[in-house]
Amino acid sequence: MMTGMERFGALMSGGTPDRVPIVCNLLDQGARELGLSILEYYSRGEHVAEGQLRMREKYGYDTLTGMFYSALEAEVMGCRNIIYADDGPPNVGHLVINAPRDIKRLHVPDDLNEHPRFRELTTCIGLLKKEAQGRFPVLGVVTASFSLPAMLMGVGPWMELFLNGDPALRDELLETCSLFCSRQIAALREAGADLIVYVDPLASATFIQLKKFRELALPWIIRDLEAHGPAGVIFFNGGGRINPILADIREHAGIGAYYLNPYDDITEARALLGSNSLIAGTINDIRLIDWSPDEIEREVEKIMLAGKRAGGFIFGTLLMPCGIPEENIRALVAAAIRHGHHAESVVCR
């Protein structure tokens, strides 16, 4: 039986693993595993690493997620108030940008580890890398420069700026966010992240039309990845549909793996990307809150069937809500293992 790392390695070198690799994005659930509040859990990188290791061991999926919560990036960029909940991810409670002059004041530290919260994150990734012992890839997660401003100034004001605002101000903000994104990729890789999940919801077809994507978002995807290259980067939908933009990203940014939205068609994605890219097909994990094990089984089977036909396939979730019962997480992973096995006659890619 292959390890998670071997499964990803096989896919990335064009081969066929023993079964489809499974990415299960459990984050806040780690607090429950350790009997801590979410605030306590995220206060230390050691806690998060322990939570990730226990959950992977418990459910048996193939990756370790080196991520706390998205708003941590806003903290590093100056957000002074994070709102914690008992049953969900922490939220931005203070917007860093409230006026144009705030954009000029943004500062990206040369060494992101100077920031205590970022240091906890890289500590976590380092521990995961060490404990994984090469058996499971550690995922580092970064928000794209085009989407990060939404956390710094709010989605509405950011949309207003990039659609109809001052282009010079918009580009100044994107320059800063791109520098942050690029430095973050470097720091997460240095800490031990094997793969970088690049999250760009504002660039998705749910937010902007293709023409605007090409004009405004695509150049910044290229820029974000310029320093370190697209190898080992997975483009993550962030909750929006991405099939309409896949071909452009593939052609111009050279990213080799795409994490689809549950509403993106897997067969269509393969046709758009050609045979040389990996595709992660996702289950609508909000439904896992109340689906029965039989319903989960049927849904997983359907996704796996489409994925195995498409080839170069990874099975994944979005960010699993806390309300999903443990037995449904077990049912999900068990079904993914059962339906993810490749018959000998099936050629992966």
Binding site: M159, L163, N164, A205, F207, I208, Q209, L210, P244
Partner: peptide, 14 residues
């Protein structure tokens, strides 16, 4: 018949 985007909704509403 293209997907209507959030930015289009946003602008129309604004």
């Amino acid at each position: 018949d293209n997907l209507v985007t959030l930015s289009q909704h946003f602008l129309a509403s604004q």
